[in-house]
Design a protein around this nucleic acid. Structure first.
Length: 325
DNA sequence: TATGTCGAGTGCATATAGTA
DNA sequence: TACTATATGCACTCGACATA
């Protein structure tokens, strides 16, 4: 919290040439208790006017409407003009705050103080942090790039066409890829271009910590009637890439959405011993990425990397070593 | 300069699954 | 059963560009 206050002081000095002091509000008792969960309050004097600064403890849960309500409450209780202060803001929320005429300061970014006829804006810092793992749609994008060996820059629209996700999902995926520093994201006019500038091996190694198994669920089928809906997966495919013995019950994969659409057509068994094959329900459709009727080696690796079996571990190593990067 | 088009970003809504 | 988390789409808006 001390950081944002010093950032604010410095920002006011740089932009308005004012060396101000933010002192902790003494008379806090008159303010509703719940406000103290969200803000720390400071007094500040700007251009001969007193203000009370509501420094957000965490802006994540504060919507513009809530901030407007809180600011109005503080104004009515203390009869001093309030100013909302936080570290970052999205362009959407900035617009809403301006619509609501809520004075705010975003250090090193923007200051909106209508009472002082001040509306300074520089640039918007997107509150973007490194993801812990990639969304399934994002994982599909990276694996598509790896499998198809794509080097040309891609737009969200192209990815929408190629992978069948909505443009919004692809837009979010590109943001995730940018946040994880997996590729360079550039803008060309109103187009956004994602350029995977690493070689395949570098991209795979850099992406690996963010990747999850594609398997959401396992199902057992009494019979396999329409094999065209499925891609060969699991140990069945791994056996083709290595010296591993194929399993007695073949393993297949299908996107979970495709499974839901067709599940009335399958004879599902509760028990593996009465099934003829095992089906993995994947978070993305294996056919989006794979070129043939088998799942791609990268997704296969992710689907089996947690299997604690020396034979599988050895076969996976063998398969990955054989990949032509 | 005004206007239309299109790509992109956002909050919110919805469906689904997991968990207490 | 209710609540929560996750994943994705919808509706809307903004901004850049092309064209008249």
């Amino acid at each position: 919290m001390k950081d944002i206050v010093s950032l604010c002081r410095r920002y006011l000095l740089d932009t308005l040439g004012m060396n101000v002091t933010l002192s902790t509000l003494v008379d806090q008792g008159t303010l509703p208790f719940f406000l103290h969960d969200h803000y720390i309050f400071y007094n500040v004097r700007l251009l001969d006017e007193d203000f009370i600064v509501l420094a957000a403890k965490s802006h994540a849960k504060l919507t513009p409407a809530a901030i407007r309500k809180h600011v109005g409450l503080v104004n009515s209780k203390l009869n001093i003009k309030p100013v909302f202060l936080c570290a970052t803001i999205s362009s959407f929320n900035r617009k809403r705050l301006i619509e609501y005429k809520v004075p705010f300061i975003i250090p090193e970014n923007q200051m909106y103080l209508p009472d002082l006829a001040i509306d300074l804006r520089e640039h918007f810092i997107k509150a973007r942090t490194k993801p812990l793992s990639l969304a399934p749609a994002t994982q599909a994008v990276v694996l598509y790039v790896l499998n198809q060996k794509i080097t040309d820059p891609l737009t969200p629209k192209e990815l929408t066409v190629k992978l069948g996700y909505s443009k919004m999902s692809m837009s979010r995926s590109i943001s995730e890829i940018e946040a994880a520093e997996l590729a360079k994201v550039e803008t060309d006019g109103n187009k956004r271009l994602v350029r995977f500038d690493k070689n395949s091996r570098e991209l795979w190694e850099k992406t690996l910590p963010y990747l999850k198994t594609p398997i959401k669920k396992i199902r057992w089928l009494k019979s396999m009637e329409d094999v065209s809906l499925f891609h060969e997966a699991g140990e069945s495919t791994l056996a083709r890439h290595s010296a591993l013995t194929p399993p007695n019950q073949p393993v297949y994969a299908i996107g979970i959405g495709n499974w839901r659409k067709n599940r009335g057509n399958f004879q599902v068994s509760k028990y593996s011993d009465e099934a003829t094959c095992k089906v993995e329900l994947w978070s993305y459709a294996p056919g989006l990425i794979s070129k043939g009727n088998k799942v791609d080696p990268f997704s296969l690796y992710l689907s089996l990397r947690d299997v604690k079996d020396e034979r599988v571990e050895s076969a996976l190593k063998q398969m990955m070593e054989a990949i032509e990067w």
